[in-house]
Design a protein around this nucleic acid. Sequence first.
DNA 1: AATGAATGAGCCTTCATTCAT
DNA 2: GATGAATGAAGGCTCATTCAT
Lengths: 194, 194, 194, 194
Amino acid sequence: MPRPSRLNDVVEAAANVFKERGYHATRLEDIAEALGMQKGSLYNYISSKEELLLAVVRPPAGRLLSSLSELAEADLPATEKIRLVAKSHAGVLEEYFPYVAVYVQEIAGQGHSEEWLEMDRRYVRLLSQIIDEGRTSGLFGPSTNPTLSAMALIGSLNWMTRWYEQGGQLSAEELADQIASTFLGGLITRTGRR
Amino acid sequence: MPRPSRLNDVVEAAANVFKERGYHATRLEDIAEALGMQKGSLYNYISSKEELLLAVVRPPAGRLLSSLSELAEADLPATEKIRLVAKSHAGVLEEYFPYVAVYVQEIAGQGHSEEWLEMDRRYVRLLSQIIDEGRTSGLFGPSTNPTLSAMALIGSLNWMTRWYEQGGQLSAEELADQIASTFLGGLITRTGRR
Amino acid sequence: MPRPSRLNDVVEAAANVFKERGYHATRLEDIAEALGMQKGSLYNYISSKEELLLAVVRPPAGRLLSSLSELAEADLPATEKIRLVAKSHAGVLEEYFPYVAVYVQEIAGQGHSEEWLEMDRRYVRLLSQIIDEGRTSGLFGPSTNPTLSAMALIGSLNWMTRWYEQGGQLSAEELADQIASTFLGGLITRTGRR
Amino acid sequence: MPRPSRLNDVVEAAANVFKERGYHATRLEDIAEALGMQKGSLYNYISSKEELLLAVVRPPAGRLLSSLSELAEADLPATEKIRLVAKSHAGVLEEYFPYVAVYVQEIAGQGHSEEWLEMDRRYVRLLSQIIDEGRTSGLFGPSTNPTLSAMALIGSLNWMTRWYEQGGQLSAEELADQIASTFLGGLITRTGRR
DNA sequence: AATGAATGAGCCTTCATTCAT
DNA sequence: GATGAATGAAGGCTCATTCAT
């Protein structure tokens, strides 16, 4: 039984090193070293450093977008959708931690290329549509700005890549759940408002 | 009459190019070109590329931190402080746009060095103290997690550097004001909750 | 069957070019050219130009010192030791000609670093001890200044790197033998002195 | 009364720094700094770094050669000439210490250019003629090799630039006198030889 | 005379990429 | 698949030199 190609190992090592040092600052040699091979050997699996970045970054980006797409079409109230969006975003973050971190740092919102610009736009559009649903349905206030709100939520979630550490007390999903709560309900206590 | 040093020009040009291409991807030649000089001439003003990054990044970081410090000590309710924090954060963003963008992309939350780690920690600490005041005083819900909430707000605001464009319909401060409103009051309409 | 590393070739080429042009004036490109490779390729063997200098210079320095050490401990009259020191010094010079020349020009007696200062001191100390033996045993005159005499002999021998050319009538060892004779016996004929 | 041009100061500062760091390793800025001026200002006195080296090196070289020439023609026995050559060589060394050190390190015996090659040759020729006189007159042994002996003496004297320090117990001339004694009479005591 | 700024050539070093073995 | 060596194109930085003020 032939062992599976080590391509996955290569991409994973790359994700880890890219997250640690940043894409430009990491040398292929660093990645090779993490794998216990020589840098030249990497070219048995990839054809360029850039391609390696894309290999790191496409899976989490795809996951993020596809889970958002699914939720967008679900038959749920906007509040519920938002909460689930946050949780699934965080779930992907947790599962593909370094991959997502690299995606956020190097690609998301950077105008890296048309491919990724389009992905950014789609993500924002889907999320703001959900928010708009909530507004239209009266769940959210009429003055809600869907796009801005989407950006704000995305920012909160993406920023997690800069401080979240695996193995902490709260899982990424629990943290995202709390963020979603604040985002939906605000910090201000309702009792004071009635 | 001594000519004014062009150091400011150099730092400004660097901020612009760093924002556009990212620190590692910009060559000193790019910066020199933006200034109409040779790359070697830059060394009349700086002693290394790294130092140039720091020169770009220190002013906005200082501004951000000092304005937060001031507000933290002000005699205002936490709600008001939060709103003002967001607005001043955005004010700095607008005033020093490329500088702040470079700071957020290259430094903030990156563990770049002890100097900056400490700055990150201070910023988070000050903001979570404000949120904690709000909780203690009963303005914010008792289950509020001050640190997490601080992170969420910081993420929303810092993420602006990836999408905000100067010259749009709404100023950065207006956008930040809306973000603060959501953060404080939530998206969900109160009437729907009674 | 592993190819033999070309490190030796690199160091040898460096020795030749350093001798010809001097360390500071030679560009790595010169060395690469002498090897028929690109300058970048040199870094497969060395990690810096400075290290290359040390690689050139350490072998002859070690040889010089170790052969002197051996002779110092031999059971021979001081006159004989001196003669053999000169001959072995010249033997090393001949065998490692450009290496020794580089060592003498760039390192010896230059206070380049503590490592080399110590080597200088040891060489002088050993040689002056030999001379002191000769004085104590009555072979050499009582007013002999061992350190100064050591310096004088070392100077004569090291200066050979500036004029000795391989392939001449007399070998380096023969020349050194004559130098030693003069050093020991003087130019003045003994018969004239009776 | 116009103060004398600072050209002398410039050359002196250059001599000191060249001696300390070596010609290639010193930057004009180092020299300027030693003078308390900016490097650009040096060009009010010199027209190139190379020229500055020559300005440092020509006076001592000239002195060395002219004092040797004078002695060569004097009506003295070869033994006396040799001793005086050594003493005057050392006298120049002491008077122009850093200048001579630079000359010896950077120029003498280096084949720097035709001008200096010729100077080297003349120096050796004059000294070996003196030695040859001694041989012819029977003062020195018949097997004396004048050129080689000249080289040996020159080496001993020039090597002083690597270890002599001004302000020591013995003056350079006293040291040279001892060196000359050894060179003439040898280390071996005559009494043992009768 | 002096200076600060600018120049431009050059050098060391890095690194993605290639390739023969 | 793996490797060590080689490549070549940069890129950061240095520094002798120039020049307007």
